[in-house]
Design a protein around this nucleic acid. Structure first.
Lengths: 254, 254
DNA sequence: TTTTTAATTAACATATTGTTAATTGTTTAT
DNA sequence: ATAAACAATTAACAATATGTTAATTAAAAA
């Protein structure tokens, strides 16, 4: 029952993959962390050997949604096909359907963001669709001549990540399962600007009471790590608690 | 350059219109408030005179997005066309594209919610597309045999409204420009369950300090209203302050 | 004049924050 | 071995905010 209605010329999914890289600044020191986005350079030719639209430009990974597939599933599939990266937290955050956003016609993009810890992106690799694949800092990324309206999509994705980082346990996905408080603090500070996070005394006093993280213990004793300090630091992990906040009540509800 | 790619069979927008009705319970008493959703009954015939899909069922207002139009613009247009309602706060909150959600083929819905204060919905009217148009409580709505996957969309819309009501100044759109605190409290309680809102002493102490509302004054004096009480109650209005909350810091940031 | 009722305000114990200063536990340099 | 360095805590205390129960206020209605 096709073509009964006026239809778009294409239905796609794009994925903004974010990670936080750690740069070692010295033995027993918390590393320098930076938010990065993974972009691909669009191949010159498509699968049929025709010139690719916006070829040679840096872009978000993505592609057409197939029939019998949702945009979300397409995002998962394309991310794996195009970059070799698999099994990450994907979130749909918007639809981009302004007339003229794609030269090829009326093409709709479902935008997703993905949070990956650095380790997960080690498996990234070039593919047929991506002649290059690289991590960029956000400052670098906005300097690039990006394909389509991907600049806008990235700006919006960043806004959603900041919001979700503040309101949910999104930080979890940037971190290893077991982490020390300075790691959590570092992750938060790459995205959020907040004195109660950046002030050590305030953060270290408050963090252990957060209902969504829990100190790890090993046969009755507190499990500690020296990875970033001489003083052994307590390891924590996220639990499944979903915090709820409200502008009409400051206190977290349990 | 059409049909170069596999395309959906239709691209639509649907709109979940919410309002809070006030039922008078007596002179000088705060009214009983209830959250309602506006649904339409789908006409038997479409514009071409053909039988309408899911005709006779209750459904969200909505319709096909035209080329050179965004889903958001289509939501505005369809809401006006189909219900006669205009100029309200519309928010896109999701995409529904599961295979099989619409018998007619691969049809994508962009879901929006709309918040209307009761007065704005007075202009609602039946149209060609809607043989009936009515407000339902949420309990009533879920009992209905709704068209397509509109039951799911309504459930999700409700979740978004609860979230936005707690985290933003969404309540503003349910209220008249100038309101008394018991009205704000009533609106919040139709959607949120929170002791610091339902406890009068706590709410009345806290509310005047909220950074996003401001007491109204008229030539130097506090402007008051007797609409719901013998004691004149202070009138407030929302300002443009956008509150920010975080799970890592309870206190509201200014 | 008294009662009634919503809208406040008061009062007080408890909990949470902001801030500055002190301690602790290890490694590394003397 | 001793001391210096330094991240990771703890402590201490004043300033705010919250939970709760009780009192006050203002106008209408009995």
């Amino acid at each position: 029952m096709k073509n009964q209605f006026i239809t778009p010329d294409g239905y796609t999914s794009d994925i903004a993959v974010f990670t936080i890289t750690s740069e070692k600044v010295g033995e027993y020191k918390p590393p320098k962390k930076e938010l990065k986005i993974m972009l691909i350079k669009r191949s010159e030719l498509d699968h049929e050997g025709n010139p690719n639209m916006e070829a040679g430009k840096w872009a978000l990974p993505g592609g057409f949604v197939r029939p019998y597939e949702t945009a979300f599933q397409a995002a998962e599939r394309r991310l794996a096909e195009e970059t070799g990266v698999d099994g990450l937290k994907i979130k749909h955050f918007g639809v981009y359907d302004s007339p003229g956003r794609d030269q090829r016609g009326w093409i709709i993009s479902n935008a997703h963001y993905v949070i990956a810890n650095e380790a997960a992106l080690r498996s990234r690799k070039k593919t047929y669709d991506a002649s290059e694949i690289e991590l960029f800092s956000l400052e670098e990324a906005v300097e690039l001549d990006l394909a389509f309206d991907h600049r806008t999509i990235i700006d919006d994705a960043l806004w959603f990540i900041k919001k979700d980082m503040a309101l949910t346990t999104l930080a979890k996905h940037f971190l290893p399962d077991e982490f020390v408080l300075s790691e959590l603090q570092g992750v938060l500070l790459t995205v959020l600007d907040d004195s109660s996070i950046s002030t050590d005394a305030a953060f270290f006093r408050k963090a252990p009471t957060l209902p969504f993280i829990k100190a790890v213990s090993e046969n009755g004793k507190h499990k500690k790590s020296n990875r970033y300090s001489k003083t052994p630091a307590q390891l924590y992990r996220f639990n499944d608690f979903q915090p709820i906040v409200s502008v009409y009540r400051n206190k977290l509800k349990g």
